[in-house]
Design a protein around this nucleic acid. Structure first.
Lengths: 242, 242
DNA sequence: ACGTATTTGTTCGTATGTATC
DNA sequence: GGATACATACGAACAAATACG
């Protein structure tokens, strides 16, 4: 082969052979993570950037689209492109990981949620601040007041778990958990339409809240595990009865 | 405001408002993930796909480039576009983000991995089949044999955890876990270059394997927790020392 | 309430360098 | 070397949605 590299004495390094969009992508990511462009801020328009860097708009768009799909920026027609909050793009790949699980059965989903949620409850019992405890209790009382209305009690249910997620002080875990909860949304909503199910959930919530309030890590984990497991059984039973 | 939506009786759903490139991206991800296009295989040329789907080449390129930046495919000029091995799918782009992240985010990542791995180990102790136990042991022995070679022992290390993930029989959890492990890849690799660290990891692995082998769920969880926590401490110490 | 400017979304044509046969 | 297939890159153009005076 020999390929007739060069006749000169020195061996030039093989040249990184990186495409323009790739370089561009890394440059843009750098701007976002280093904070040159802050959360919610608007970045220059496509034409502006491409003109400034002396490159074609298509190349820039390829890099920009990748950033958007990663959840780092959001583009709105007629408005501009804006930087997203960090927590968004830290959890988005998790979504793909989950969806990529081809045979993701409902039971797997429930089990995964159980794992996350019990650990989150334990962490919350360790770390919740006074304000966060108040928020959890507020969601609890709200659900108690709206126990008759399936849609509203469902909302309060969600808020209760979200509040605990915040109290765990780990955005990666709580985002992943919220993701799973959203995937099960339809089924949870169904549960709220079953007579008595919401009331039983409320009881569980009371016990979970009490454990977190008293900083009882093990009990918080145990109560939450029980809650999710029970809920899961109800949902699975319901689905299999169709 | 009222915004004068429609005068008609029916409320049309708000229109998904998703761009073509985005839809395309998801479609392509689906093809790769579901295995229509296998590892190392060549996918149709850009012109072919765009013609077949009746879309512009630029839109396709935006989606394709995103896939490439995510590490799912690799494009070579004059040759074609090929599907990459599955292992490092989602990790590459996030490395950039994580590298710019502060220490608290790294600790969140480690904590999330801890939560997942300990539960996975517990599930594996419950569910591992004979063949899966063999596979775990094989990875273990492989690491023991290659303990002197950082790169090889690192590979065996990864394989060990992946084998346990499979034995847990929950693709959602093991996928999510593999993602996190990939994110920490560089640091784990660094760890293998520290004198004695690999040997200590190996000891942990032996204890974890023993617990799983004897179906001791609690001990498997405990040993794995200890293993990941120790590894995490080493990584954090290492990073803060720069 | 209306028009105009701005910005992203999408397509097409074309030129270029590279790899394979 | 030549022919062919392919990715890379630029520029121009129009459509659609939004913001602003």
């Amino acid at each position: 082969m020999a390929k007739s590299i060069q006749k000169s004495g020195v061996l030039l390094q093989p040249m990184s052979r990186t495409t323009l969009s790739e370089t561009l992508f890394e440059k843009l990511v750098g701007h976002v993570v280093k904070g040159d462009w802050k959360e919610g801020e608007r970045i220059p328009s496509e034409r502006e950037i491409s003109a400034q860097l002396g490159i074609g708009r298509a190349s820039l768009r390829e890099a920009l689209k990748a950033l958007e799909l990663l959840g780092m920026v959001e583009s709105r027609v007629g408005d501009g492109t804006f930087v997203c909050p960090r927590s968004d793009f830290l959890s988005r790949p998790l979504l793909w990981a989950i969806m990529g699980a081809d045979q993701s059965e409902l039971s797997h989903l429930i089990e995964a949620r159980l794992v996350l949620e019990e650990s989150i409850a334990a962490l919350a019992a360790e770390r919740a601040t006074g304000g966060e405890l108040k928020k959890i209790k507020a969601a609890l009382e709200e659900m108690r007041a709206q126990i008759e209305d399936p849609t509203r009690s469902f909302d309060s249910d969600m808020r209760f778990h979200i509040a605990i997620g915040e109290a765990a002080h780990n955005p990666i875990l709580s985002n992943a958990d919220q993701l799973m909860r959203n995937l099960m949304k339809q089924w949870i909503l169904l549960k709220h339409n079953i007579a008595g199910a919401a009331a039983r959930s409320l009881e569980h919530h009371v016990r979970i809240y009490d454990a977190i309030l008293h900083r009882d890590v093990d009990r918080a984990r145990e109560e939450m595990r029980n809650h999710i497991a029970t809920t899961g059984r109800v949902v699975i039973e319901f689905v299999s009865h169709r």
